[in-house]
């Protein structure tokens, strides 16, 4: 990301996260914050990585597996503890198309 984010970028990201941005004021606020953060991280670009191989994981260890053995699941009241709306054993959410 070399350019600063535009209003449209902010609206798009808001849509992806299903956040409703009502006013230009809000968009401006997010735009300023986002761009500040991005500018801060751009410092990383100053490092010469020419001879560094891409890293996908910081740990050197590999292959931590689990055997295919059944563990107990959560109990119903534990599951529903954080559920704002339920019907019988279903979790209810707004319909999203």
């Amino acid at each position: 990301m070399t350019e600063d984010l535009t209003d449209d970028d902010i609206k798009h990201v808001a849509w992806l996260a299903r956040i409703k941005l009502e006013s230009q004021e809000e968009i401006n606020e997010y735009k300023t914050t986002f761009n500040d953060i991005l500018r801060y991280f751009k410092k990383i670009n100053e490092i010469d990585t020419e001879k560094v191989r891409p890293t996908f994981h910081i740990s050197r260890s590999v292959n931590r597996f689990r055997e295919d053995e059944i563990k107990e699941s959560l109990k119903e009241d534990e599951i529903m503890q954080n559920v704002p709306k339920r019907k019988d054993k279903f979790i209810v959410s707004p319909r999203i198309i």
């Binding site: 597996f65 689990r66 295919d68 699941s73 959560l74 119903e76 279903f90």
Partner: peptide, 26 residues
């Protein structure tokens, strides 16, 4: 099975839970 009976912090994505790979799946 009745809905939401085989769920745990990992498959519910609760904060702090960590996935681990089923060897047999691989």
């Amino acid at each position: 099975m009745p809905p939401n009976t085989y769920v745990c912090p990992v498959c519910l994505g609760l904060p702090g839970s960590l996935p681990s790979v089923n060897k047999k799946a691989v």
